[in-house]
Amino acid sequence: MFAVEVHNLRKEFFRRDATRTRGRKRRRRVAALEGVTFTMERGECVAILGQNGSGKSTLVRLLSTLLLPDGGSAAIFGHDVVKESRAVQRLVNRVSVEASFFKKMSSEENLAYAARFYGMPPSATKSAIPEILERVGFPVDRRHEGMEHLSRGMQQKVALARALLTSPVLLLLDEPTTGLDPRSKLEVQQFIREVWTSHDATILLCTHDLTEAEVLADRVGILDRGRLIALDPADVLKEQYEAETLEDAFFAATGRTFEDEKDEDAERGVFA
């Protein structure tokens, strides 16, 4: 059984234009994912590279049951994300680009209530929260401080702790290091590596960071405007596209540099 099995997955959104036709705003279709197919083995770490609007976040949100697909299918350890969403939710957790917490509440309070949603009673979280915070390198004596007083890097460590507290077998990481300072970025990456090797976790990492993808992942996928155009180990990708670096391979695969973001991509970024 595959840890993740995605077949011909499609998702589109509609946006209203500012211009009006017969007094009504026109609706325009924006395809976020177009026929994405791939599988992941248990214990594998796969990185998905893509620009803003490439569909990375849509993929993560589909796999975490926050979106319904318009076509195709996705299954986590054999459980369909639409028909067996509750079973999928028990297996998955995620870390996204924004830490997303109740800012006035402390890290301990945020972790405590979130753990209850996964069936962890107070007796279990009393010791588990300080332990997990210590593991992610968060100063445990600051666990009673409001989240608003913590740096972005600290908040992201708490986000990692929240995801790991519920022992997920599939960890979805959606740009977990974007916006972090170099030191925090390195610490988070080290922790991801530690979790991957010490836990029996399968990791899907969506990122902008080519080095991060190359260093952390078994295989690297290139998602371009909703289409998964490659998925192979970084070395194979470089060989396949006759490129010296992963960035060159990305350019060869998409016909654009990583920074070459068009208006269309920026617009897609609002949704995908």
């Binding site: 949100r61 975490s64 049951t65 926050l66 509750r86 939710q89 028990r90 998955v92 995620r94 996204s96 924004e98 830490a99 997303s100 917490f101 109740f102 800012k103 979130a114 949603f117 996964y118 069936g119 929240r162």
Partner: peptide, 14 residues
């Protein structure tokens, strides 16, 4: 507003 909506709705809670 706080951004926790996705985490609450992806939790295995009826």
């Amino acid at each position: 507003w706080e951004g926790t909506i996705e985490y609450t709705f992806m939790a295995p809670l009826t």
